[in-house]
Nucleic acid binder design. Structure first.
Lengths: 339, 339
DNA sequence: CTGAAAGCGCTTACAG
DNA sequence: CTGAAAGCGCTTACAG
């Protein structure tokens, strides 16, 4: 392995000088710098990341803490998208991305913080009452949660505005005259576990419906399957007054078209349908529903921006930022028939 | 930050002794060890990962090189599964997992290798003629490709046996009397880019059909969409003699049930259907087709096992391991009508 | 503008 | 069984 010493010797300067030209800092004469660069080139030198990290007490890496792989028995279709989005954003800031998986997020955070493996962490799969918030505070490691717990205790939060998404979907249906709707949610286990996005969206939806005097029937797609094909027909049978449907469950959204096809339900002629889901999934799957589309890359990117800012300034006051996501109109809503 | 020095002082021993009890190596008297452990406990000591890495020249991290996020314009449904599988397996071996993304995989490999950021790498999204193979050889970094290029040049390879999968699917159809089949593949861009699994499966499929005198029509799901709903009906119209279908395209498999529903095609009464896809996706989506199910966790785990082995023994001779995947029979194949 | 030197927090022969 | 010491490859005041 070629080190700074080798380069220094080759260029006839000191290690310090090499270090300065590598970091671009300090004012080294162009002449010396050229010599050093030539030597580096010749020897194929590359700075040793670990040594630099030890010396500067900066790893230039961020960690992604993700504990629950199957958010309650469901194959997470968007997990990859968030990871890639975070990694890409980190790279733009000159950071590497470390996957901090493990059953126990609290343990993962503690150990990452104590062993100084990363400069900061992004926490995924946030729960409404998330034990990891405490671990974050305690360890003092710079962190931002991609997801909003009930009490963020002064930890930064970035997420999509699921509350607003629910309201705008309900409004859209209400404005089209719908007065009885059906909500297709995640598997019950997801709510029991209290995954923030599920709980927040549902609560906001119920609230928005209550305020407007809308009737809501709720059904949960067990197994998070395209069990849509079983659940949806049954739900409609049980709640015949419903003229519209709100789906918050990626797998169910994907499966819904088949379910409608099978049961002979025409959208929007027989039923108006709206959803909230990752943009990419909607496009990739050519989902034909009006949707609040989550721009996963934008959310991930914003999260990393915030984390980098936090790493730079530990004293900065904490923020909770919920990003509004745009509505994509695809023609799956139409006016309810007057009764 | 509490260091070994602090612990040593607290316990009244030397740094070396602390180091030995931390690593469990050497024979420190139980009495001394207890004192040291008490001091560590009291002070909340945790070994500094970076310092250890510099000292041992081992980072205890592996990198995952993944260049193409959208394997040719398609939202990759299984990307997350592979990442999580790899991270979990790495963790079992005591390794962290670093995401090495970037447009240029060659550059990512070089830089990771030169800067000693990781002890080894897993390469994803392997192409048939993959430029990264050269970079791997050159850099000498321990590596295993999760995917099989045409020439692995002495680099280890682990992947699902897509060749065998194609053969067994064809055999299954052939044995049921099918003589004309339709192949629904990935978007053309995937084949143009020569992603290994796509090319390998298709080649093996064509070969297996040719050997048995089967007719094959091939259609590619543009946009990798659930464009299945457009592509499949058209394909069947264009090739009316087909009595069976093979799908290799995750999005198309997910969309296929709807397409059949819409066009009134009953499976298997009117058409036999077989696929190959990740197990988890098949289960999560309740795909009703006979499938070769890829056990992503098993493949990821085996890949990491191999990498750890390779890190331990750089001289070990390279292997190409293609893991056979099981066939899940779900009742989507039946005997072709005799003509 | 450049170099000598200390220091980052560990590990690991080597003495004792 | 335990400790003194050198070394891992950088960075960074501090002199000059």
């Amino acid at each position: 392995m070629v080190t700074m010493r080798d380069v220094a010797r080759e260029a006839g300067v000191s290690k310090a000088t090499v270090s300065y030209v590598v970091s671009g800092s300090s004012l080294i004469s162009e002449k010396t710098a050229a010599k050093v660069r030539a030597a580096m080139e010749k020897l194929g030198y590359s700075v040793n990341h670990t040594a630099r990290a030890l010396s500067t007490a900066k790893t230039n890496a961020i960690g992604v803490v993700t504990s629950f792989r199957n958010n309650g028995a469901c194959f997470d279709l968007s997990a990859g998208a968030y990871l890639y989005g975070i990694a890409a954003a980190a790279r733009r800031h000159g950071y590497d991305t470390m996957l901090l998986t493990g059953d126990d997020g609290v343990e993962a955070i503690r150990s990452a913080a104590l062993s100084r493996r990363v400069d900061g962490v992004v926490v995924l799969d946030v729960l409404i009452g998330d034990a990891r918030v405490g671990a974050l505070k305690e360890s003092g490691i710079p962190a931002v949660m991609l997801g909003s717990p009930a009490d963020s205790q002064g930890v930064d939060v970035v997420d999509s505005n699921f509350e607003a998404a629910a309201v705008s979907l309900v409004e859209r249906l209400y404005d089209h005259g719908h007065r009885s709707i059906l909500f297709i949610g995640w598997p019950e286990a997801v709510y029991e576990r209290k995954l923030n996005y599920a709980v927040r969206f549902r609560a906001s939806l119920m609230e928005a419906c209550a305020m407007r005097g809308l009737r809501v029937g709720a059904v949960y797609a067990h197994d998070a399957t395209l069990g849509a094909s079983e659940v949806i027909p049954r739900a409609l049978r049980d709640c015949p007054s419903a003229t519209a449907m709100v789906i918050h469950n990626d797998a169910a959204v994907v499966g819904a078209p088949q379910a409608f096809e099978r049961t002979g339900i025409r959208v929007p002629a027989d039923l108006s349908v709206v959803t909230v889901m990752p943009d990419q999934l909607g496009e990739g799957m050519q989902i034909p529903f009006d949707s609040v589309g989550i721009d996963v890359d934008a959310v991930a990117s914003h999260t990393v921006d915030r984390l980098v800012e936090r790493i730079g300034d530990p004293e900065m006051s904490a923020r909770v930022e919920l990003l509004d996501q745009p509505m994509h109109v695809r023609g799956s809503v139409r006016a309810a028939h007057e009764d």
